[in-house]
């Protein structure tokens, strides 16, 4: 248990990427940062740069154009990294399952650690999911 490992769990930096979601989950991810839910009190900071991120929050189903972008972003996040699929579409494709341009859930393209169901996800559920991911990270033998 090194210093970096401890601080990563105390203060994970998050990057949010929207695949082709309906925005419902995205605004809830943003709502997590605002005063009522305020995830910054847990040390969670939202980053714009994948190279600074520890946790990848992904919303929306993967479509044929974002699959490449998602793969690219995932490769840029330094390890150890956690991928969280936020919402039903990100988990399975959800209501968009029969749309021609949708490949399905995020796990069709990158490995996923935590699935958060819900359409759209409540901010409490997102915070719960991040905590689950951190527990997984903490228990990992690094």
């Amino acid at each position: 248990m090194g210093l970096i490992h401890n601080s990563r769990i105390k203060s994970p930096w998050i990057m949010h990427f929207d695949n082709s979601s309906c925005n419902g989950c995205d605004i809830e991810v943003l709502a997590c940062l605002t005063p009522l839910y305020d995830v910054e009190r847990f040390g969670i900071v939202n980053m714009g740069n994948p190279k600074h991120a520890d946790v990848l929050l992904i919303t929306g189903p993967v479509n044929r154009r974002t699959a490449r972008v998602l793969r690219n972003l995932y490769d840029q996040v330094p390890g150890p990294k956690m991928v969280i699929a936020v919402g039903t579409c990100a988990s399975t494709g959800g209501v968009f399952h029969n749309c021609y341009n949708v490949l399905g859930g995020v796990d069709k393209v990158v490995p996923v650690d935590v699935y958060i169901p819900g359409c759209s996800v409540r901010p409490e559920a997102i915070i719960d999911g991040v905590v689950l991911a951190l527990q997984k990270l903490a228990s990992a033998n690094l």
Partner: peptide, 24 residues
């Protein structure tokens, strides 16, 4: 980047299911 194909899925679904799809 956000293209899903909802208009086509609207033809495949029954009309009352379109409400849940189009909301999204």
């Amino acid at each position: 980047y956000g293209q899903r194909g909802i208009e086509k899925a609207c033809e495949l679904n029954e009309y009352n299911k379109n409400i849940y799809l189009c909301e999204r």
